[in-house]
């Protein structure tokens, strides 16, 4: 029985039924179908939430192996598991609105994640500064456009040269926007065709199957 549910054809059948239950009510609103679609969405949302347990279990198992076999860096896995336990227990025991959990979140997690996010600005600046070189007439044009938009992005420029907003907006709203649109249109069409390949069982990597797997 379990092998039937793991089979490619069973999973694609579930995929097609789910697709129809979500797809059809969008175009043809009909009470019972809407209800069924809503229930399916709720089931999917709840199922998704439960997958966190699998992820945590998988991390514990991996770290456990590292520690058991004393592999390189095993001490860090003890540290990792201890932090996971502290964070989880403080949430379970004291609740998410109590001092301990909130302190861990505000004093440890958020500054650390903010730092990683902040570093992004440095990477983007250095990559941008290195990439903007007038190597050819085309890249010179790109450089000029980039210069105008960057100048406009500096808040002071607009206060002294109000005209720069028009120039920068023209560049972003015509050239930038057309690229963005092209991207959206081509990606959307690509995504729909990918969907057709999934529904017809041609593209099955997302189900964990490789070529020729049944």
């Amino acid at each position: 029985m379990s092998s039937f549910f793991k089979s490619r054809s069973a999973q694609i059948t579930v995929l097609i039924v789910s697709f129809l239950l979500v797809f059809v009510p969008y175009f043809i609103p009909w009470g019972p179908l809407d209800w069924l679609s809503g229930k399916l969405m709720t089931i999917a949302a709840v199922t998704n939430a439960f997958t966190i347990v699998i992820a945590v279990y998988s991390q514990f198992r991996r770290s456990g192996r590292f520690i058991n076999e004393r592999r390189k860096g095993w001490v860090y896995h003890i540290y990792l598991l201890a932090l996971m336990a502290i964070m989880t227990l403080s949430g379970f025991i004291f609740g998410q609105h109590a001092g301990a959990y909130e302190w861990l979140l505000l004093a440890v997690v958020t500054p650390l994640s903010s730092v990683i996010y902040g570093i992004l600005a440095f990477y983007m600046s250095s990559a941008g500064a290195r990439a903007f070189r007038a190597r050819s007439p085309q890249s010179a044009l790109l450089l000029i456009a980039g210069f105008v938009v960057l100048m406009y992005q500096a808040p002071l420029t607009g206060a002294f040269f109000p005209g720069i907003e028009g120039a920068a907006t023209y560049l972003t709203d015509t050239f930038g926007m057309s690229v963005s649109r092209m991207f959206s249109i081509s990606v959307s069409i690509g995504a729909i065709v990918l969907g057709v390949r999934m529904l017809t069982g041609k593209e099955v990597a997302f189900l964990g199957f490789g070529e020729g797997d049944e």
């Binding site: 070189r133 007038a134 450089l143 500096a154």
Partner: peptide, 21 residues
Amino acid sequence: AFTFGHYSLIIFIIIGNIGHY
């Protein structure tokens, strides 16, 4: 900080291009 950050990036781009040229 926003203004000066942007201007400093522009200066680096200008330096890089003068050097490249």
